[in-house]
Amino acid sequence: MASEGMRDPKHYQLGKTQFDPDLIKEVEALGGKNAQMCYQCGTCTASCPMGQRSGLRVRTVMRKANLGMRDVLDDPDLWLCTTCYTCSDRCPRRIMATDAIIALRNIATREKKVPMSMIKIMGAISKTGHGVPNNEANMKNRVKVGLPENPPTTHTYPEYIKDINKILEVTGLLKIREEMEAESQ
């Protein structure tokens, strides 16, 4: 019988931490070079501009990746990294911690744990070829400096957009976007 504030003994999970030894290998394979070699010195966290103003702790992310604690993929702070690469430049074990974070983001994306803001950027690229497409106000500004209304990119040559979508399709990204946009309805 559990009283208020006390955990029901039936639910105690001693010794049940889940470790997945393959996680770090997935991270290294996706570009997180040397990630397995982290010796937790903390140079990365100390170099991180986001670490100064949020709960993002690069070292802890690397710890969880190394031990294989997959709950790191659910961490909303994982998406706070601005990819400034300061940690990677200073790491004494030459670990690309930024790329390890990007790798974890890739794995999370496959599990549809990616923020909708990212999906929206993919949507813009899928539709127009640009992550930040042109608009009316800008077209006027373009003409003012002597440029055509649209740049000579996919905006002027939309026939190239289908190629872009083909790549999004074969890599499985389009599907992820479809499913996530459907779920968010």
Binding site: I125, P152, I167
Partner: peptide, 29 residues
């Protein structure tokens, strides 16, 4: 000169975070 048919690079931080291979492929395109 005008670079015909170019697209988003694609955005390395935002797009690359979702899939590095797709990012490389779109960049290579």
């Amino acid at each position: 000169r005008d670079f015909k048919g170019a697209s988003c690079c694609p955005a390395p931080g935002a797009f690359g975070s979702m899939d590095v291979n797709a990012w490389l492929a779109l960049g290579a395109r």
